[in-house]
Amino acid sequence: MSTNVTTGFKHKSVEARPTPKVVSHEEWQAARIKFLEREKQYTHLRDELTRQRMELPWEKVEKDYVFDGPEGKVSLSDLFDGRSQLIIQHFMFGPHETIGCVGCSFAADSINGVLPHLEHHDVSIAVISRAPLPVLEAFKKRMGWNFKWVSSGGSDFNYDYHVSFRKEDLEKGKVYYNYGIVENLPTHLEDLQGISSFYKDEDGNIYHTYSTYGRGGELQLATYNYLDIAPLGRNEKGENGDLTAWVRHHDKYDEKGHVDNTGRYHEDKTPGSCCSEEHAS
């Protein structure tokens, strides 16, 4: 099943088996040992992909990007915060939105715990969106996040790294995303998600080393990695076969809202009703 561009994390669903085969301990262990060989193959392949990823060429960042941060204007160089490596999460949050994308919020929930470990290993993380800084700050406070989040609304950064799309391109029905042409993206969907990595040398030169989109960001999703070893796996049975079936902002699981196929959360008026007019656009 192909990647769902709007959420980024659609995969080929594995049907849950409510009546699995029950065997003796000896049979269970034999099956587990046999499967272990496949897991080792996967681990070695992942190691090899990592090695090849590190051998990819770099491109020098020639443009001076400036963002709105909590303490004023900051450059891309400033986001390194004294370290040589920078990972950026491109968070879907457009200028006219007040609530962050559910899928990107799902990913952002994984950052807080790893942040001190990365920062003590020469890696900084920053989250970047086009929404105005006060909107980002309010949502960040609501969600209890402590990572650095800046607004790129006044720069070309999102467009240059192919996670935002100009209206004229959307109206033409073709945009460039995940290293290919995506056709007929909803015209209101001006932003999508991704991850980009950068390196800064001792002379202050910045290089773009890697970007990934769609399912390329799944390795950074701690919840999915836990679910993949749970008895029923991801268990995403919804119409879209992705996280929109069940993921909510972590403070909304007890509410009656729903998530549409673009990753936007909607508060329902009453149980079983459609979304409110306030969030219908």
Results as ranks from 00 to 15, higher is better:
residue 183 E to N: 11
residue 230 A to S: 15
residue 199 Y to W: 11
residue 243 L to G: 04
residue 238 G to A: 12
residue 234 R to T: 08
residue 163 V to F: 10
residue 222 A to C: 02
residue 162 H to E: 13
residue 169 D to A: 13
residue 217 G to C: 08
residue 142 R to H: 05
residue 143 M to G: 00
residue 163 V to Q: 04
residue 205 N to G: 02
residue 213 Y to N: 08
residue 221 L to K: 08
residue 203 D to T: 08
residue 239 E to R: 10
residue 245 A to F: 05
residue 168 E to D: 14
residue 190 E to W: 01
residue 145 W to H: 15
residue 214 G to D: 05
residue 176 Y to G: 07
residue 170 L to W: 07
residue 184 N to M: 07
residue 152 S to M: 03
residue 151 S to Q: 11
residue 238 G to H: 08
residue 202 E to Y: 01
residue 175 V to A: 03
residue 143 M to H: 09
residue 168 E to Y: 06
residue 159 Y to P: 00
residue 136 L to C: 06
residue 155 S to G: 06
residue 240 N to L: 10
residue 174 K to M: 08
residue 233 G to Q: 08
residue 240 N to F: 10
residue 152 S to Y: 01
residue 219 L to T: 10
residue 159 Y to N: 09
residue 212 T to S: 14
residue 203 D to K: 14
residue 208 H to K: 12
residue 242 D to G: 08
residue 245 A to G: 14
residue 245 A to S: 15
residue 159 Y to G: 01
residue 214 G to F: 00
residue 194 G to S: 13
residue 228 D to C: 04
residue 245 A to V: 01
residue 202 E to D: 15
residue 196 S to Y: 05
residue 247 V to H: 03
residue 222 A to I: 11
residue 173 G to K: 02
residue 236 E to P: 03
residue 232 L to S: 12
residue 191 D to G: 01
residue 142 R to K: 15
residue 178 N to K: 02
residue 136 L to D: 03
residue 191 D to T: 09
residue 182 V to M: 09
residue 240 N to E: 15
residue 145 W to C: 02
residue 162 H to A: 13
residue 236 E to R: 06
residue 204 G to Q: 09
residue 210 Y to S: 10
residue 184 N to G: 01
residue 201 D to T: 01
residue 161 Y to N: 12
residue 217 G to W: 00
residue 152 S to A: 15
residue 214 G to V: 06
residue 186 P to K: 05
residue 240 N to V: 00
residue 230 A to I: 03
residue 185 L to K: 05
residue 175 V to N: 02
residue 207 Y to V: 08
residue 141 K to M: 11
residue 187 T to H: 09
residue 180 G to T: 12
residue 147 F to V: 05
